[in-house]
């Protein structure tokens, strides 16, 4: 094996390691939803190439309102689904769409676009 091949393979393995670490091993930190005067735990979620924030921490037993704002035209993110709460909403571009639900049990609940390419998580504590 020549030195250039060794270099390519070492760099390649390094890249693979980076991909594994970057996509699967790092745990994102969550954003705590704020309690508003209306008695809701509210959080604005920006839909643009993904959900920002994509991990939202809420407390069990208090209703949650996620306000989704979609700022892109790619049709992938047209809908957002919360299968655990039987909720879905279509998101017209530029409009704020509230999705409300009541988390009863602590746990982690996913929300995602219809094709599952964009994902987010609600952590109920």
């Amino acid at each position: 094996m020549t030195w250039d091949k060794i270099v390519v393979d070492v760099v390649g393995l390094g890249l693979i390691g980076f991909i594994v670490w970057f996509f699967w091993l790092v745990k994102a930190k969550g954003v705590k939803a704020a309690l508003t005067s209306g008695g809701y735990q509210e959080q604005m979620v920006l839909v643009k190439g993904g959900y920002t924030p994509d991990v939202i921490v809420v407390e069990a037993g208090t209703p949650v309102r996620l306000n989704f704002v979609r700022q892109e035209s790619a049709s992938c993110s047209e809908m957002v689904l919360l299968p655990a709460f039987d909720k879905s909403a279509s998101l017209p571009e530029g409009k704020t769409v509230p999705v409300e639900f009541l988390p009863k049990e602590p746990g982690e609940y996913e929300f995602a676009c219809q094709m599952g390419m964009f994902r987010g998580k609600v952590i109920v504590e």
Binding site: M1, K5, V8, D9, G12, V20, F23, M115, G116, M117
Partner: peptide, 26 residues
Amino acid sequence: IVDAVSGYFTPSVAILAILGFMTWYT
């Protein structure tokens, strides 16, 4: 099933591409 796969799909393809590059180069 799809949901379970799709989280791993795209990064796996990138890994496959790198492995392909390494194999062909070597």
